[in-house]
Design a protein around this nucleic acid. Structure first.
Length: 427
RNA sequence: GUGGGCGUAGCUCAGUCGGUAGAGCUCAGGAUUGUGAUUCCUGCGGUCGAGGGUUCGAUCCCCUUCGCCCACCCCA
């Protein structure tokens, strides 16, 4: 019988990996909460139309990457390819946007049918934050400052850089787009194949092209900057001022356009060199028209999403995950000899209940030696050893496994107190 | 969707100019009758990705297929 394996691009997260994920998720959610963000959880499946209307009918995501199917009622449903649309839908549906500001965050899997490669998967995970009801540049800056703080906390701040740009209002962008298309149409023959195609589908993306001759053509192309209103410009320069004052380094990239249709004004991307081709680790921007576009009352919004796989990959590559963060066992109990296992059960319970410790009790017998090997392998910091002698004397041996430290014999009561204190101080 | 690379033990890989395979790690046990992470010994473990072809004989050569990885496209 052929074994069934996981779907291409959809990965299992094994127990050797999950502690890193948990560390990352904990760090991010703690920080979001510190900024007043509250968690929201949305379904993974939505009406297909939600994504068509928000992300944009002609984007690659909607055109060829969505997992879309017809359910038993004949409705067209899709696995969410990103979180913002669902979040807006949920917030509006439950009246969270009515005359109030709202700071929300979410985490979970997203789905896109792309060819997998390093840092890109068909089921991938994002942690995102969205803020509604604030139109000023201060919240743009706050969000970016928050992310900058996260990199610092994670110890990767010197390996990411901030790219930032403004896309202007939809009408400003439309005027620019028309002129850009007009200009590029005169030079179609000099454009690379992909860009020729994009001239039809998504002309702004041509600005992003990696092709050199295309970039040469772009040197004389109209600039989005020249189409921006005074209001848009001053919004953007305020954002940059706030960042400067907060000590967040950035580089303005006029070619940064972002792939989703709903963005307006500020857009930004945190990128890294240490990941290969998929260097964008966190990206976001303002989307003032989106709520209205989805049928709600006009409400300004801004948000970002980060790719968990990419960030976790980075943390591992840069080796910045604290050892304590990935430890899963505190104490391993070695119980060898007649009648010791029974007592071990008791000690294990006490350590868990009174000490709040993560305790792995040896099961299945085995010699002292083999049990000590298991203790070592478990990653526990301390071995609690209970042999026949100790059992008889009402004692246990406490041995530190992390160093060449010695061991000490303690009364069983004292051992519990000792361990509790040990982990309180350093846990 | 397009290109390139790779599939041999649970993992990382070597190998056979065509005669059905080996190492390290892991795991189990022992040297050390109660002490791990260092050392030494022993053992467990493979339809050599799958199907077909050539051949007396294929893990090796040819064809097909599946899977994984990286890159393009696109994006977190």
């Amino acid at each position: 019988m052929a074994k069934i394996q996981a779907i291409r691009g959809m990965n299992d997260l094994l127990p050797t990996e999950s502690p890193v994920w948990q560390y990352f998720e904990r760090t991010v959610s703690d920080l979001l909460k510190a900024y007043g963000y509250r968690e929201i959880r949305m379904p993974i499946v939505e009406q297909t139309e939600l994504f068509c209307r928000s992300i944009g009918e002609v984007t690659d995501i909607v055109e060829k990457e969505m997992y879309t199917f017809t359910d038993r009622n004949g409705d067209s449903l899709s696995l969410r390819p990103e979180g913002t649309a669902s979040c807006v839908r949920a917030a509006d549906q439950h009246g969270l946007l009515f005359n109030q500001t709202q700071r929300l965050w979410y985490a979970g899997p997203m789905f896109r049918h792309e060819r997998p490669q390093k840092g890109r998967y068909r089921q991938f995970h994002q942690i995102g934050a969205e803020c509604f009801g604030l139109a000023g540049p201060d919240i743009d800056a706050e969000l970016i400052i928050l992310t900058a703080g996260l990199w610092k906390k994670l110890g990767i701040q010197s390996d990411v850089t901030l790219q930032i740009n403004t896309l202007g209002l939809p009408e400003e962008r439309a005027a620019f787009k028309a002129d850009l298309v007009a200009y590029l149409s005169k030079h179609v023959d000099q454009l690379d194949e992909d860009s020729q195609r994009r001239l039809e589908s998504n002309p702004l993306r041509i600005l992003d092209s990696k092709n050199e001759t295309t970039q040469q053509v772009l040197n004389d192309a109209p600039l989005l900057e020249d189409y921006l209103s005074e209001e848009t410009r001053s919004h953007f320069s305020s954002v940059l001022d706030y960042l400067k004052q907060a000590g967040v380094a950035y580089s303005v990239n006029p070619r940064l356009v972002r792939g989703l249709d709903y963005y307006s004004k500020t857009v930004f991307e945190w990128v890294t060199e240490s990941l290969g081709a998929q260097g964008t680790v966190c990206a976001g921007g303002r989307y003032d028209g989106l709520v209205e576009q989805l049928g709600g009352k006009a409400t300004p919004g801004i948000g970002f999403a980060m790719g968990v796989e990419r960030l976790v990959l980075m943390l591992k590559e840069l080796d910045v995950v604290p050892a304590e963060a990935i430890r899963t066992v505190d104490v391993f109990i070695v119980a060898a000899g007649e009648g010791t296992q029974q007592k071990a059960f008791e000690l294990a319970s006490t350590l868990r209940e009174e000490g709040g410790l993560r305790v792995l009790q040896n099961m299945g017998g085995g010699s002292f030696k083999s049990q000590m090997k298991k203790a070592d392998k478990s990653g526990a910091r301390v071995a609690l050893i209970l042999g026949e002698q100790e059992l008889e004397n009402g004692e246990v041996v406490i041995k530190d496994l992390t160093a060449e430290a010695g061991q000490r014999t303690l009364g069983q009561e004292d051992a519990v107190i000792h361990l509790k204190k040990l982990f309180d101080n350093q846990g």
